[in-house]
Simulated assay, not measured.
Amino acid sequence: MTSQRSRRAAATLGAVSAGLLVLSACDKPTPMATVTFGTDSVSTEAECYETLSAEQAAKCAREKPSKSIDVPQGETLRIGVDPEIAETGWALWINGEPATDTFKKTYWAFQNADLFATQPGQTAQKSLTVSVVEQKKGSTQYKGVWNFKFENPDA
């Protein structure tokens, strides 16, 4: 009888320990960013979400995106961010470099976006990494980076 109680106690202790381990592995989800071209959309959580220096933000913006979307030439690019990102402010970066001023809206549209435009004699790029970077206007502090791979279906 004692060995049966010991086994039950050990099994209960093991189940509680496993449950606590699973709970400790859960992180609070980060705010979301979404990009849309035509009827296609992709959303993602942040690649990095903490207080970042300019160098850390640039390094994070060059990380391989987990989400990709085809970018037809001349379509409207729509960016949507959670309200907490808009409250701080955000900008678009392309291939790890700032590309726009800071926005403080949850939604922004870029009409006739031609991200793969080329000069005569150049070949079009096959893809770009476009990042939504949460940052205060004029600040060197960054809070989050959301990466997307934009693929050129015409290349």
Rank of each mutant, 00 (worst) to 15 (best):
T100H: 14
A57C: 07
A86D: 04
F103L: 07
S127C: 07
S43T: 15
R78I: 14
W108F: 11
C60R: 01
V130A: 09
A117H: 12
V130N: 02
I94K: 10
A54G: 01
E87N: 03
T129I: 12
E47F: 05
Y49T: 06
A61C: 00
L128E: 09
T102M: 02
R62I: 14
F110W: 14
A109H: 09
K104P: 01
A109G: 10
V71H: 13
Q111C: 08
K64N: 07
T106G: 05
A57W: 01
K67F: 10
T102C: 03
Q73L: 12
D101Q: 14
W90P: 02
I85R: 03
W90H: 02
P65K: 05
S53W: 15
K59I: 05
Q125L: 13
A46W: 00
T123G: 09
I94T: 15
K59V: 06
T118G: 04
F110L: 11
W90C: 03
E97R: 03
E134Q: 09
A117G: 11
S41V: 09
D114G: 11
T118E: 04
S53E: 15
E47Q: 10
E45A: 10
I85F: 10
Q119M: 07
L128K: 05
E55T: 15
K104Y: 13
A109V: 08
T118H: 08
L115M: 12
A91F: 07
Q125M: 13
I69D: 07
L77F: 06
P120I: 06
A46N: 01
S43D: 15
G80D: 15
E47M: 07
V133K: 00
T36K: 04
P98L: 01
K67P: 02
E45D: 14
F116Y: 10
T39S: 03
V81F: 04
S41A: 11
E87S: 02
G38Q: 01
I85S: 05
N112R: 13
C48R: 08
M32V: 13
N95A: 13
W108P: 08
L92G: 04
A99K: 15
P65R: 03
Q135N: 13
V133W: 01
I79Y: 03
E97L: 02
T51V: 10
Q119S: 08
K67W: 07
A54R: 00
W90E: 02
T39E: 02
A58P: 03
P120Q: 08
K64V: 10
S127E: 08
A58C: 03
T44F: 07
E45T: 11
T123S: 12
W93H: 07
A86F: 04
